[in-house]
């Protein structure tokens, strides 16, 4: 079934990505893959909107440069025809201070002929920014945000 093979392709991609196996991760992707990870690109230059398979190698290289250990666990995966969605729990150990940043990521994939052509990803980006910077930003903005939002 198409959805079963696509599901396996996404699992293989995630496994290769976090293992740092560039060739295997790229092999899961179409040459013209279009990817958007919704996150502030000032802090995460390998995220945002990218086009082409070279993004895979770039993203792995940047993460390896910043993080000594990268682990992932797929906690939910669903596949239907040419589309796959996964929720992944990630833990990355920072090289500069040894702290572990943890986040849950939602990823949506579209595949064609067994390869990933489209990738969209979300996570609690404000929390990850705080973890990466190593300090709390919530106090700085909480009053302003509450004033803007709350009834």
């Amino acid at each position: 079934m198409e959805s079963d093979s696509n599901r396996q392709c996404v699992l293989d991609f995630l496994q290769a990505f976090y293992a740092g196996d560039v060739a295997a991760a790229m092999a899961c992707c179409d040459n013209e893959i279009d990817t958007i990870t919704y996150a502030p690109v000032d802090l995460f230059p390998h995220l945002g909107h990218k086009h082409g398979r070279a993004w895979v190698a770039e993203a792995i290289a940047i993460q390896q440069q910043r993080y000594a250990v990268r682990k992932h666990e797929v906690i939910f995966i669903a596949a239907e025809d040419s589309r796959v969605a996964a929720m992944t729990r990630c833990a990355l150990t920072k090289r500069n201070d040894g702290r572990v940043v943890q986040f849950t990521e939602a990823e949506f994939f579209a595949l064609r002929e067994g390869r990933i052509t489209e990738h969209r990803a979300f996570f609690d980006s404000f929390d990850l920014v705080q973890q990466v910077l190593g300090h709390d930003l919530a106090d700085e903005f909480a009053t302003s945000v509450r004033g803007a939002m709350e009834h």
Binding site: F126, V132, F141
Partner: peptide, 25 residues
């Protein structure tokens, strides 16, 4: 039900202004 949002963007929209972050090469 589990929901994920680009929360950094949400906060910027709620504030009506960008949050300036350091660039990390």
């Amino acid at each position: 039900m589990r929901v994920l949002i680009d929360t950094f963007d949400l906060i910027e929209q709620a504030l009506g202004a960008p949050i300036h972050l350091p660039k990390i090469a």
